[in-house]
Nucleic acid binder design. Structure first.
Lengths: 344, 344
DNA sequence: AAAATTAGGTTAAGCGCTTACCCTTTCCCT
DNA sequence: AGGGAAAGGGTAAGCGCTTAACCTAATTTT
């Protein structure tokens, strides 16, 4: 049997309260006792049960992370950031892949609540607000990650998606592109990215009048390919010379399709992705992408979560961080364009 | 305050033992009582505390997963497989990224033990056996994943690394390649892969006498590049026409380096990777790779772990699964080779 | 009809900690 | 020297469950 606090107390000739105090380093304990108890702990290889301690102290030291899929690089990187931060404060992470399935999310949420996790970071909501609304009402410490819900008063950490879309588009315009395409997915953030795209065009006075050059789909490589195939299959005068994809996977699909259509990148087509995952470095040519400042985002998320854990009715805060354009080799100027025709 | 089992018992007019029994669906309870209690639980939105129940039942329903880095696609996919299986049985996963740092691993392990996880899946050991040996001695249910330790009597699930290396090499030989290179990393499994490589050459009677064509390094894209640069920089007669890299990341480094050296793949160079991660589909050309049967592996790992949890002194088992060659576009015949010169 | 089962609960003792509160000593001040 | 404060530690009541043991009434067996 694993030794308990009673065993330690007995061996050290003190009460369990004393042991508990040296364990948690509080209360008044003389150096001598502290040392003796410490020694006994070593001898017995005592591992205090955090489940017992959680029962009394109401802190489990574990936080739940809800994401669509841990096998998706963007979320794996997110998880890593949060894990590192949690680890620093002695907590750890239960990872829950929901596949954006509301029922699965509900099951997981319930499990996490029964496990009495200290808090939740949710990066997988589907837009259905009722479950989150209920959690909030129940005072469950929680922060929304990477996608917020405007109608809800919840803490959140996001990147400025609108700005990201705007930025990507501005950049493509500056390279001389005038016929642009956009492939968006069906997530909340992507809507904003698309808005940014459209507004950037409008602000530059570049018309966007070909409905075939905007596609909504879900984020897979194959869908990216298909969407690109449709756009690139148009007659030359309609076909875009640059495509903004709302995430890296879609963008890489575009890259692949372009190549098999015999186009050279970036000469014949420029492509910008979003998220700046490892994939952007892996593919060929390497992908220009809008980076989410993941490390800062995860750090902020943990800060907000901690606030909320320490004081359940501390004010909720929404934090929005700036995206950053990372230029690689999938983008280039429109061939033959004269410098003065470039924007900016 | 969250309702407890006492609240439910009081409202339902029964004892807490009864509530516990309907909760766990054991003991003898009439349908009427069961229903009434169930109704009260709903009304109160009762969420039984699994931490309290863990304290008595000695089952936390959580398992610890130790991996080098959750942001590494191979381990993220592993985690997903284990998570899915765990979820089916109502458990969940604490993910620990150790960076293959023994001290970090020790800290995490201790945390997991104090949290009284039901068992450990370890995919991150560094070859230092003492910590694992101690865990085993302490009867901690555990299974080694993806790399075993021959000297230890521990359950494990691995792919046949030797066979994988052999298979990759056989395939390259069958394409007519005779000057091969290998880039290995410093992990236990990779040694076996390299052995398989060398034995395949020996068995085919193909000499491997150029020490410059074997490199050991750690698994990063950049290291793959560097290693490839060294090999490809040799005079034509020494330079390999095919390279086997012991994991996908290294292989992709090779792809990149080859391209910037102006080589065309697979015409001028064939490349085989290992692990068959998503990256193999992302890169260009897509990567021929030795696949680990991840889904079966994670399933087996969970089966072994469960056995060990249910009966701590059930016999340990080592399971080795077969790798599979997945042919994509990074490999091809040596140019100009006649069919009869090919090995089969 | 008496004895033996069975169904359906209840009682109470933990599980291994934390913590408010209390009790001695010892020390310091005046 | 006497009194108060501080230092060091102990007591005991939970935290919210599970489960062995037990009890009573109803049902079955012979």
């Amino acid at each position: 049997m694993k030794p308990t606090i009673y065993d330690v107390a007995r061996e050290a000739g003190v009460s369990i309260a004393t042991v508990s105090k040296v364990l948690n380093n509080n209360g008044r304990i003389s150096d001598k006792t502290r040392e003796k108890v410490g020694r006994v702990m070593e001898e017995l290889n005592y591992q205090p049960s955090l489940v017992a301690s959680a029962l009394t102290s109401r802190r489990t030291g574990t936080i739940g992370l809800m994401i669509p899929d841990i096998a998706n690089p963007f979320f794996a990187e997110t998880a890593r950031g949060i894990e590192d931060y949690a680890q620093q404060q002695g907590s750890d992470l239960i990872v829950c892949s929901t596949d954006r399935d509301d029922e699965k999310a509900a099951r997981y949420t319930s499990l996490l609540l029964r496990k009495r996790v200290d808090g939740l970071i949710i990066a997988s909501h589907t837009g259905k607000t009722d479950m989150i609304r209920r959690l909030l009402a129940d005072q469950v410490p929680l922060v929304l990650f990477s996608a917020e819900i405007r109608s809800l008063e919840s803490s959140s950490v996001t990147v400025d998606d609108y700005k990201g879309g705007y930025q990507a588009t501005e950049y493509l315009l500056s390279l001389g592109h005038r016929k642009l395409g956009i492939i968006s997915d069906n997530l909340p953030g992507s809507k904003l990215r698309a808005e940014g795209f459209l507004d950037a065009l409008r602000d530059a006075g570049v018309p966007f009048d070909n409905p075939a050059n905007i596609t909504h789909t879900s984020a897979t490589l194959e869908n990216g390919r298909r969407a690109a195939a449709a756009m690139l299959g148009q007659p030359e005068e309609l076909r875009p010379t640059a495509i903004f994809a709302c995430n890296d996977l879609l963008a890489i699909g575009v890259l692949k399709e372009a190549r098999s259509a015999g186009l050279s990148i970036p000469r014949d087509l420029s492509v910008v992705g979003f998220d700046n995952t490892v994939l952007a470095e892996i593919c060929h040519p390497t992908l220009t992408s809008i980076a989410q400042p993941l490390r800062e985002m995860t750090e902020q998320a943990m800060i907000l979560l901690n606030e909320s854990i320490d004081n359940p009715d501390s004010p909720r805060r929404k934090i929005m961080l700036m995206p950053e354009l990372v230029i690689r080799h999938s983008t280039g100027p429109v061939p033959g364009i004269k410098p003065e025709e470039r924007l900016l």
